[in-house]
Design a protein around this nucleic acid. Structure first.
Lengths: 240, 240, 240, 240
DNA sequence: TATGAATGAGGATTCATTCAT
DNA sequence: TATGAATGAATCCTCATTCAT
């Protein structure tokens, strides 16, 4: 053993420590991801009530107790999935902002992205219902609920910017863009939620399909937003 | 024993039976009503998960077992409240049909009724979320789910008729009235649902209030439905 | 590498080792003390069942695993507090032995010390209850239980010496001093234990206060021990 | 079928109902007794911590849930055993009151009964330790703790009456009988508790046996209570 | 029909202890 | 030696549902 060797060791240690710390961080994150994935699978399949922590634990090859190191309760795990879903949606919506299109076309694109997201992840919408149950609410820290809200706001922000853009460019009437964004967001969400709610609605009676319904809602909204002009008749036709 | 004896008995019984049957029917209905009332109180206050059959039983002074004579499961009891709510809403909506107004004004009235109903019974909207949970679904007979759907259809029927009337009277464009009714129903419902969902949404960020939001959505919808005419500009102003 | 090198190293190490060993010893003792202090705080506040190793670890800024390097189990940690308490009591009692007083006065002093100790550390008495639970006992090494007993014996030894002194000096009757010490010890201990046991006893019903009760018990005991008057013969008979 | 028959039936029903009610009462009581018996067996053998509700349930051939119909928690079940023990002791003590003996002799008898009780049921004394743990306390209704206290007071009442009798008959000095009863009760209890506490104490070091110890304590107490000779004045001064 | 005692599977959560680093 | 993440058995308790009366 030489001093150099020792120093090397010292050097290596520092490197090792750094690596260790990094790995720990990565492992933590991955562990959390593993749990979320497993939770997603089970909650999506079984719903909240019938899902057991045992099953989630089995699904990610961890001990049940380990889950509680990462999530305070079954409810928090559930709400975390909601946060996850809103994050994914936000990311998808953000891909629109950069496109070089007119505001009204951007809204159309938004709808496309939204609808595509729904088709990829219909279950995320089902998840959102439970958060309003008072008994669930009680068992989730405010902090987490706030995060949830923050994600939703980020989504609405995308809409907000498009409406502002339309207003600036003169194709939208001067409206309170933020109120308008909320209305659009709520409406889209509400329609999907309602639609998703019930297979009966969806399959047997409501022969209108979801995409059409959303498009129609958008047309109506655009009808309200757009500054009417000679092209009005053309639009009217497509809005049937 | 003779046939006459039997018939005599039969005759006597028939009166008694009739009375008994009537009383039974009345008692049954009332019993069922008592249970529903108690369930309503508890479910509204505690949510689905935290409500216990014991508490419901206590609330209607019946034995727990008795409830199961009238409702197959906790879930059926819960969904029955949804049926109840839709029935009440339908009744309220039906008070509109008879008014002698233009179709567009009728839609405005509908919204008023709807909103008033929501304000009286906000909890009914919260109830509806859970029905989409697969584990709840599994424990409710199709028959009951159908009843639920039927009530919703009856509500939409009111909208349908108004739209048809508007189309007939020439103030609405020729649209598929049924599709349109569904869109309006879904949108209104969706918005309220979404709004009701979350105190956060309601109180802190979404400074738009619900009634405004619904009115705006209706304006947009009317914008799409109404046959444009010189009065368009006037309408545009009010739709801001 | 040469032997000299090794020896050199050995020599250097020996100094270092000595220092290290000393420091280690000191650190070890302090570590153990830290843990005990934290355990004391938590156990005293929460009781045995509700105390968690996590909380103790947090209280002494050590990792949970580290505690297990110093104490084999939660139970040993608990019993160690009992040992600690008996050690403190023994030390207090030992301050009496040196006083130049009559045996009967010494016993009075003992009582004062004892009572003062109880008032300073009432919680130590509460701790002692659990040691009799078979499930606790099973999880503590005999060695530690013996240490516990040893401390108690040291306490009784103080009593024993006083009684022997009294016998030698002729003011106490000739009794088996050791038996007598045990009786006194057990009685005092028992009374305090019983008193400490239950807030109900203490506050509402038993209006006799503890010190009075102990004094009375001592008077009784002294009545039995003292040779004080002509009536001695009569009493001696009955006091077997 | 005759009217008489029907009336008979009516009569029988009332009888049946009476019988049913009685049987229900008896069954309830027995059920509760069954549970207590099983709990006694398990708690006595294993201690509080290692006892599981499952094991208790198995021991009385009832479902776990059933136990909770009769006892609110594991802790209440445990404390109920304490109540039971005090009740048994009280009953034993009450057999003394009727004897036609002098007060001092009665106290001797009391001790005999007490000691016999301890020998029959040493485990009841071990049970009493846990009640002072704050975490146990928290989980027991005040009502039950009061019942516990009430039983203890009933026991002390026996002592109280004996002392009063002794005072009345002139063989005891005029003391506050209730205070005195409490001291005697606490002392006896304390000694046994202390003795029972620890097999080590009992077996290896403390060669004094329990009965001797109790007798000695009683002698001392009697020494303090009895007015027995001319030297009384002298003693009275020191025993104040 | 009404009861409500009994059920017992099932659940979430805890926490003393271990062990790889 | 110190760590603290992971463990997973163990625990108490709940509560929808049943069924004998």
């Amino acid at each position: 053993m030489t001093v150099g060797h020792l120093m090397n060791i010292g050097g290596q240690m520092s490197q090792t420590q750094k690596r260790t710390a990094l790995r720990k961080g990565r492992e933590q994150a991955q562990r959390k991801g593993d749990i979320l994935r497993s939770a997603r699978e089970v909650f999506f399949k079984k719903g909240f009530l019938s899902t057991t922590m045992d099953e989630i634990a089995r699904g990610c090859d961890l001990a049940k107790g380990t889950i509680y190191l990462y999530f305070k309760s079954k409810e928090e795990l559930y709400i975390s999935l909601m946060v996850e879903g809103l994050g994914l949606l936000r990311d998808d919506l953000n891909t629109i902002g950069v496109l070089d299109l007119q505001a009204d076309q951007l809204l159309g694109e938004i709808l496309g992205v939204y609808f595509a997201f729904y088709q990829k992840n219909p279950q995320y919408f089902r998840i959102m219902f439970l958060s309003s149950q008072p008994d669930v609410r009680e068992r989730v820290r405010d902090e987490l609920m706030q995060e949830c809200l923050g994600r939703a706001v980020e989504c609405m922000q995308v809409l907000n910017e498009i409406i502002e853009k339309g207003t600036r460019s003169g194709i939208f009437r001067k409206v309170d863009s933020w109120s308008c964004a909320i209305i659009v967001w709520t409406t889209i969400n509400g329609i999907i939620t309602q639609y998703e709610q019930d297979p009966f609605y969806r399959c047997e009676i409501l022969k209108v399909n979801l995409e059409e319904m959303l498009r129609a809602a958008l047309e109506l909204a655009l009808g309200g937003l757009l500054i009417n002009n000679p092209s009005e008749q053309g639009k009217a036709k497509s809005a049937s």
